[in-house]
Design a protein around this nucleic acid. Structure first.
Length: 522
DNA sequence: TTCCGACAGTGGGGTCGCAAT
DNA sequence: ATTGCGACCCCACTATCGGAA
């Protein structure tokens, strides 16, 4: 199959906003890929989902700058493109960067204009065609003549879409496809997509949301599980005898980097296991260390550095134990099993129907230095890959009134707007200390307003960033402070987002860097 | 007819490893 | 030795479509 066929499809996806029309485009190109055989389906399904088959190519957004102009006529096949990226991904050692760039230039030179757009999107990871994995799964279902749920479930259990697309589209009939899909089951050693949580502003809201959903039959005061939310990295651990594998949230295998987790799981009383949890670094008193330290420890491959801190695993769910799949069992049942098989490494929780008790647990765990809680429906199954309503996280929220120091131009649907704002706190000398940036929390109306407003405050414009007279106050919400070498105050806001612009306050009334410092040293 | 679940998009800070400078 | 880039860890929030109610 020609790569240009995929580029054409991608262009048609960009051209329509209708998801049904997008799905029709995807179905069409998937069917044509199927005619070319399983290898074409494998590559095309990846590309339509916005990914290369190679997890790391060494090429990124920055490398795309110096690419040559387009070819006039299409010539590349999807297999040739895949082979080119496989070659680039395999390069290492001195001279490899140069060689990789040369290979990329050759590839781009052979690509037409729309093919170049697709290549760029795949390399940068920003395809912007309004359709990624979820819509692709729907299209696979339609192309294979099977229910969308069957395809989705197979993909969640396989931990990937490519293999599922190949299986479904390689089938001779819808019945055959259905059977092939149903053969994707939870397998020890193959990670599933982790279940995700929605968020709520406070525990009472989270509890109310869960009981409202469970309360179709108006059961009064349904019980909920209130799990401690740890500020570490998500881990999914598979054990088959002495063979233990540790995967991250994106299903990356990090087993070699975390021997202490492997050892901890080997000591548990079960032969086969699939556990879902969090790993973090603790201090001498057993309190959690800052996330940055956990991140540092879990990212390093250097043995000496790794020895400087230990990760402790805590589990909050079990998907499999000794031949028994628990995905469809209610949480209540899974937790009973978890407590038996993972005893010293289970996340602290309370189970209650009393919102006050739930709130009290939240206060206690935050006081103990933890990130917050996740409130869960007791009867819900494990919904792999879904940000279901059955899990709702709650974290403390801080706010500050800061001054907008500068603003950057937006891109994509925000192009033409001033979008990403630079945030500063007052210092004692009458100046401002930058604490980070944010683009979050802005409605279209706010974007329109600030685009005009910041033009009024413009002091300089370098073509990307507009520097402002420091007059506009904005109320910012954030999760906490982290150490920073990038910003002059030594702090940066974590997960900053705009709540509202404050026209009732002048810059002289904004919060000070001293107030911020006090937050950092409780 | 209205409501709401799910998804894609728009980017944030920090950390590491690696190759180039 | 330092710098820049790529990859990946954590992530919040809004707009939109189309099925559910």
């Amino acid at each position: 199959m020609l790569f240009d066929d995929v580029a054409d499809a991608s262009g048609r996806l960009v051209a329509t906003r209708s998801r049904l029309a997008k799905r029709a485009v995807l179905v069409d190109v998937l069917r044509r890929a199927a005619a070319g055989g399983p290898e074409d389906v494998a590559i095309v399904s990846r590309y339509l989902g916005g990914e290369l088959r190679q997890r790391r190519t060494g090429l990124g957004w920055r490398s795309l700058g110096g690419m040559p102009g387009p070819a006039v006529a299409p010539s590349l096949t999807v297999q040739a493109v895949d082979a080119a990226f496989a070659h680039m991904a395999g390069l290492a050692g001195p001279g490899s960067s140069t060689e990789r760039l040369e290979a990329a230039r050759a590839l781009f030179a052979a690509a037409t204009e729309r093919e170049q757009r697709l290549l760029g999107g795949l390399v940068s990871g920003e395809l912007r065609q309004g359709a990624l994995d979820a819509l692709l799964l729907d299209a696979v279902a339609q192309a294979a003549g099977v229910p969308a749920d069957a395809v989705r479930r197979a993909a969640m259990l396989a931990g990937e879409t490519e293999a599922v697309a190949v299986a479904a589209l390689g089938a001779d009939s819808p019945e055959d496809a259905r059977a092939t899909l149903d053969a994707f089951t939870l397998t020890v050693g193959r990670p599933v997509r982790p279940m995700l949580a929605q968020s709520a502003p406070d525990v009472a809201t989270a509890v109310a949301e869960l009981t409202a959903r469970a309360g179709a039959t108006a059961v009064p005061a349904a019980e909920v599980v209130v799990d401690t939310k740890l500020d570490g990295i998500r881990i999914q651990v598979h054990r088959d005898g002495d063979d233990v594998r540790v995967y991250t949230r994106s299903l990356d295998d990090v087993t070699a980097r975390v021997p202490e987790i492997v050892a901890a799981v080997r000591a548990l009383p079960a032969r086969t296991l699939v556990l879902d949890g969090e790993a973090l670094a603790l201090d001498a008193e057993g309190r959690p260390r800052p996330f940055q330290e956990t991140a540092s420890r879990s990212a390093t491959r250097d043995a000496d550095l790794a020895a400087s801190a230990t990760l402790t695993p805590y589990f909050f769910d079990v998907l499999h134990v000794d031949g028994w799949d628990l995905l469809d069992a209610p949480l209540r049942e899974r937790l009973a099993v978890l407590d038996q098989v993972a005893a010293p490494h289970v996340v602290e929780r309370v189970v209650t129907s009393d919102a006050t008790v739930a709130s009290e647990h939240f206060r206690a765990v935050v006081a103990a230095g933890q990130e917050g809680v996740v409130v869960k429906a007791t009867e819900a199954p494990y919904e792999a890959g879904r940000r279901g309503a059955a899990w709702v996280k709650v974290k403390p929220r801080h706010t500050l009134d800061l001054v907008v120091l500068a603003v950057e131009r937006g891109s994509g649907r925000r192009s033409g707007r001033l979008s990403n704002i630079h945030l500063g706190a007052r210092d004692s000398a009458g100046g401002f200390v930058m604490l980070g940036k944010t683009f979050k929390g802005m409605t279209d109306e706010m974007l329109a307003w600030q685009t005009e407003r910041f033009r009024e405050l413009e002091a300089a414009d370098d073509g990307w960033t507009v520097t402002l007279r420091p007059e506009q106050v904005v109320e910012i919400a954030f999760d906490g402070l982290q150490r920073s070498t990038r910003y002059p105050g030594g702090f940066a806001l974590r997960f900053a987002r705009v709540l509202r612009y404050r026209d009732d306050k002048s810059a002289a009334e904004a919060d000070t860097i001293d107030a911020v410092r006090e937050l950092a040293t409780p």
